[in-house]
Computed example of a mutant assay.
Amino acid sequence: MNKYLHETIPNLKPFNYERHHDTYFINQQWVLVNGISKKKSIYTFKEDNILEISRKDDVIKTSWTLNILNNFTIETEDGLITVEAYFKDDDILVLNNQEKEEFAMYINSTNYDDELNSVEDIQTFLKEKYKKKVSSIIYDHEFYYIEQSKEFGPFKVEELAEKVKSGEISAYCFVKDVNEYDYSKRMRIEDLIQEL
């Protein structure tokens, strides 16, 4: 069953009590992605093993427990289910059902300013989230550039942007990541600058 989950959502990190429980899990407002187009549900795992499920004007209180193997049991409308918890990022939680080939995905909306009420809202959230992540990775990373068949670098993107601004090099020079062997990706300095 884990194979199905990991093929569907790669690069999951297992729930780690010390890292996740207090900071990223307890008292956070987890919006259920599955079925959001029909009905929005917010799950809040509270201390003392209370789980609050909010839907429009209705709040259901139920229970959850965590065992020594980091498996959760959750009391639902369908009975007691056992799930294994994973994080895609600190604000994306996946609960994998241990008895069926299905999982539930949640987004932590606690620190997110906009409402998550639809599939479009989820898409916007993910797009913004990964755009920021790419920008920060690009900002800190180094690249080589090639001009007139000579290679120069490595330089950070802001250094390359300064060279372009001063007219020292063209924004259309090809660049490659320090870990790449060649310029086959055909990425230009201009492409990097746009991501900043």
Results as ranks from 00 to 15, higher is better:
residue 3 K to E: 13
residue 4 Y to R: 07
residue 6 H to N: 13
residue 6 H to C: 09
residue 7 E to F: 13
residue 7 E to T: 15
residue 15 F to I: 08
residue 16 N to G: 03
residue 16 N to Q: 13
residue 16 N to F: 06
residue 16 N to V: 12
residue 18 E to A: 05
residue 19 R to I: 13
residue 19 R to S: 01
residue 20 H to A: 00
residue 24 Y to D: 14
residue 27 N to G: 02
residue 29 Q to H: 13
residue 31 V to Q: 02
residue 33 V to C: 07
residue 35 G to A: 11
residue 37 S to P: 00
residue 37 S to Q: 08
residue 38 K to T: 11
residue 40 K to V: 12
residue 41 S to N: 05
residue 41 S to A: 13
residue 42 I to H: 02
residue 44 T to V: 15
residue 45 F to V: 01
residue 46 K to F: 12
residue 46 K to T: 11
residue 49 N to C: 04
residue 49 N to W: 00
residue 50 I to R: 07
residue 55 R to A: 11
residue 56 K to V: 07
residue 56 K to R: 14
residue 59 V to F: 08
residue 61 K to P: 02
residue 61 K to R: 15
residue 62 T to R: 09
residue 63 S to K: 14
residue 65 T to Y: 11
residue 65 T to H: 11
residue 65 T to D: 14
residue 66 L to C: 11
residue 66 L to T: 09
residue 67 N to C: 07
residue 67 N to E: 08
residue 68 I to G: 00
residue 71 N to K: 13
residue 71 N to L: 07
residue 71 N to T: 06
residue 72 F to P: 08
residue 73 T to Y: 03
residue 74 I to L: 03
residue 75 E to Y: 05
residue 76 T to F: 05
residue 77 E to A: 09
residue 80 L to T: 08
residue 82 T to S: 09
residue 84 E to S: 13
residue 85 A to E: 04
residue 85 A to S: 06
residue 86 Y to P: 08
residue 86 Y to V: 08
residue 86 Y to D: 04
residue 87 F to A: 06
residue 89 D to H: 10
residue 90 D to W: 03
residue 91 D to T: 01
residue 95 L to F: 15
residue 99 E to G: 01
residue 100 K to V: 00
residue 104 A to P: 02
residue 104 A to S: 15
residue 108 N to F: 06
residue 111 N to P: 04
residue 113 D to Y: 10
residue 119 V to Q: 07
residue 120 E to R: 14
residue 125 F to E: 03
residue 126 L to I: 11
residue 129 K to T: 05
residue 132 K to N: 08
residue 136 S to I: 10
residue 136 S to L: 14
residue 138 I to R: 02
residue 140 D to M: 10
residue 141 H to Q: 13
residue 144 Y to H: 11
residue 145 Y to C: 01
residue 146 I to Q: 09
residue 150 K to F: 06
residue 152 F to A: 05
residue 154 P to H: 10
residue 154 P to N: 11
residue 155 F to W: 10
residue 155 F to I: 02
residue 156 K to L: 12
residue 157 V to N: 08
residue 160 L to N: 07
residue 160 L to Y: 04
residue 162 E to Q: 12
residue 164 V to Y: 03
residue 166 S to W: 05
residue 167 G to P: 04
residue 169 I to K: 06
residue 172 Y to P: 00
residue 173 C to R: 03
residue 175 V to N: 07
residue 179 N to A: 09
residue 180 E to D: 15
residue 181 Y to L: 14
residue 182 D to R: 00
residue 183 Y to T: 06
residue 184 S to C: 07
residue 185 K to G: 11
residue 188 R to C: 03
residue 191 D to K: 05
residue 191 D to N: 15
residue 191 D to W: 09
residue 192 L to D: 04
residue 192 L to S: 03
residue 193 I to Y: 04
residue 195 E to R: 13
residue 195 E to C: 14
residue 195 E to L: 14
